[in-house]
Design a protein around this nucleic acid. Structure first.
Lengths: 230, 230
DNA sequence: TAATGTGAAACCGTTCACAGCT
DNA sequence: AGCTGTGAACGGTTTCACATTA
C-alpha cells in the first residue's frame, strides 16, 4: 500500500498491487490510442489485462480518473491520469551500474526511454568498457561513480552488478544522492529506509513459474460473471 | 494463493506472496550454507530478507518445515524443504525464444542453471544467429521451433521477443506442449488457462520504482516489536 | 530458557450488488 | 439504457500473543 495525492491534494491510498496494474493499463491504453481508439469501458480494459471489470473501476476511481456513466472512459484522459500517478510526466534521469550482458540489454532497450526514463550514464569496473558508449550512453569507470552522479544528478539507478558487489555499490549510490534503485542483483540490499527499492530476480521469477506449473494452479483470471440485474 | 502437497500428501495452501519469499529464503540459506552456517532462528532469517520473524515462522510452518523449539532451524533441512516446494529438485528444461540483447543476457546468466533451470535450445528469426550457439546453447530458426520443442520437450519457455510477436509465439509454444512461460515482452499473452505465465516487464518495474519514490513511502519493512512477555 | 508453531484478531484488497448519472 | 462509482460483504494474508516443546 502506498500513498498519493489526488487532484485536490488530499492524501489517498493506492494498493501496491494496483500500482502494478496501472502500468499495464497504461501500456494497453497507449497502444489503443496509437490505433485511434478514443474511448472504452471498464469491461474492455479489463479483458485486455485479464482482470475483472470491478477491479478496473475500483482502480480508476481510486486515482480519481473520471469516467462517464453509461459510456465509459476517454482514452486520452486515462493515459493522462495514470501517467500522472506513475510519474510518466516527470522526465526521470537514471544511472546504470554494471555493463555486463544484462546491463547492455537494458541500455539497448527502448521501452524505458519511451516511458520517460532516460539513462544518462553507465558505470563499470572493466577498463575495456570505460570510455566507450552504448546507444549514446557513455560508460564511466566505477571509481568515478560518486563524482559523476554528483554532477549529473540522476534520481534513479539500475543495479546490474554481480550479487557480491551489490550491497557495496548500493550504499555508494545512496550516499551519492540516488533516491531509488531497480535491483537486478540476487541480493537483499541494506539501505536507508527512505530509499525506494524494487527487486527483480530472474531466478526467483523462474522459480515462481515452476511453482505455478507444478501446483497445477492455472494463473487463470477473470472470475466474476458481472452482475446481471434480476 | 496456490496449492501444494505436504509431506503426507494432503493438500495445503501456500499464499502466493509466500512463494516469492520462498525464493528469497532459499537464496539466503544457500549463501549461509556455503559459508558454513549450520542453523539459524526465525529472527535471523527474517532480518536477511527484511520481513518480520512471524512471517518467517508462518511461511516455514506452512510448508511443513520443522524447526526445534528453543533452538531454530537447520540450514540444510530448510534448503531441502523449500527447494522441494519450489521445484528446485526437478531439473527443468527450458527453451528461450528471442536472442536479442535480453535473450543473450539470459543465455549468459548462470543463476538460472544454478537453480536447476537448463536452457536446452534457443530460437530466433535472424538467420545470422541460426546455427551459432551462446554458452553452449544452440540457436535454431524460428520456423523450426515447434519441431525442435517436440523433440527436446522442454517444460518451460522464456519469451524475449518484441511485443508485436509475443502473442503469436506464445500460442505456438502452448501448442508445442510448453507448460509455462516466463514473459519479458510488454504484452498480455492470451493463453489457455491451464498454462502458467509469469510476466516481467522492465518498464513496469521502473514505473513501480518511480511511484515508490514519488509517493514517499519507504519500502521500509520490519514493523513488529516481537512480543516480550509481560 | 528460548524459540517454535498456531489459534484468533486485525488488516487489506477484491468482489458483489446496486444506486446514481448521463 | 447502460455503465460508472462505491458501500458493504467476503476472503485471504499478516500480525499478535501465547501455549508448547526441546
Amino acid at each position: 500500500m502506498q500513498h498519493l495525492k489526488n487532484a485536490l491534494g488530499s492524501s489517498v491510498q493506492l494498493p501496491s498491487a494496483a500500482v502494478g496494474r496501472m502500468s499495464l493499463y497504461l501500456r494497453e491504453l497507449q497502444r489503443l490510442s496509437d490505433n485511434g481508439v478514443m474511448s472504452l469501458n471498464s469491461a474492455e480494459l479489463a479483458t485486455l489485462i485479464e482482470v475483472s471489470p470491478a477491479v478496473v473501476r475500483r482502480d480508476l476511481s481510486t486515482i480519481g480518473a473520471i469516467g462517464r456513466r453509461g459510456v465509459g472512459y476517454v482514452t486520452a484522459d486515462l493515459i493522462q491520469s495514470i501517467g500522472a500517478v506513475l510519474g510518466s510526466e516527470t522526465s526521470w534521469t537514471v544511472a546504470l551500474v554494471g555493463v555486463g550482458s544484462l546491463g547492455t540489454a537494458l541500455l539497448r532497450y527502448r521501452g524505458l526511454q519511451r516511458q520517460g526514463f532516460h539513462i544518462v550514464a553507465a558505470f563499470d569496473a572493466d577498463p575495456r568498457l570505460v570510455g566507450t558508449s552504448i546507444c549514446g550512453v557513455p560508460i564511466y569507470a566505477a571509481a568515478e561513480m560518486s563524482k559523476k552522479i554528483g554532477e549529473l544528478k540522476p534520481q534513479l539507478a539500475v543495479l546490474a552488478v554481480p550479487a557480491e558487489a551489490a550491497t557495496a555499490v548500493a550504499s555508494e549510490l545512496a550516499d551519492a544522492g540516488i533516491t531509488g534503485i531497480l535491483n537486478f542483483a540476487p541480493a537483499t540490499l541494506k539501505l536507508p529506509k527512505e530509499m525506494g527499492v524494487v527487486n527483480v530476480d530472474l531466478a526467483s521469477e523462474m522459480q515462481r513459474l515452476a511453482f505455478t506449473v507444478t501446483s497445477g494452479i492455472t494463473g487463470g483470471a477473470v472470475p466474476e460473471a458481472e452482475n446481471q440485474k434480476k
